[in-house]
Amino acid sequence: MEPIIRVQDVSKSYWRDSFEIPVLNNISFEVPSGEFLALMGPSGSGKTTLLNLIAGIDRPDRGTINVAGTDIVALNESRLASWRATHVGFIFQFYNLIPVLTAYENVELPLLLTSLSKRERREHVETALTVVGLKDRMRHYPKQLSGGQEQRVAIARAITTDPTLLVADEPTGDLDKHSADEILTLLERLNLEFKKTIVMVTHDPRAAEKAHIIRHLDKGELQQN
């Protein structure tokens, strides 16, 4: 299958005061379209940094990243923002919903960047909330929802624009077992039923079991399968 993500010779370092801290060292790998990839590794191994690079919210020091046919390293900030809006759905560990907006409005947020009419936006939002099973809670604010429900709203927000790629950073890291299972089942369904390519960072081996491919990172190096 044609790879949707192609990472080549990517390195990344951070600076703390005058100290350079290497995070990723010459990483290369590919993810075929429609796959569910889990990135695992200990804290500080560079897995979230790699996820951020693939999602276009951070830039590598060296190397190229091609996602859905676009060399995202070559894009300027403005075009990269536009690319993210079209191609990437984000699921964060701490949900990152906007507290002053209802579930409906949070899910509608990425659609404000499109040319969809109000009616079309409503259809998209209701479909996304139906997929995550929260259509009946769409007028609720985040503080009126449980952690699992908040994460489901975040997933609805991630899929409402029908992106090419879903990236999830520890999506179950802040949830109890029952809620975590619900989220993982939902991600699995999005992959199998809706053919979404998913890249997920996780510590949790049970979560990683849902993925088709598991890659381990350690000290900035991608381990062999």
């Binding site: 999602a55 403005s78 923002a81 690319w83 993210r84 809006a85 079209t86 964060f92 960047l113 927000r157």
Partner: peptide, 9 residues
Amino acid sequence: VFKTLGFSA
């Protein structure tokens, strides 16, 4: 988060 979702400067 806004920037992540694609909101511009």
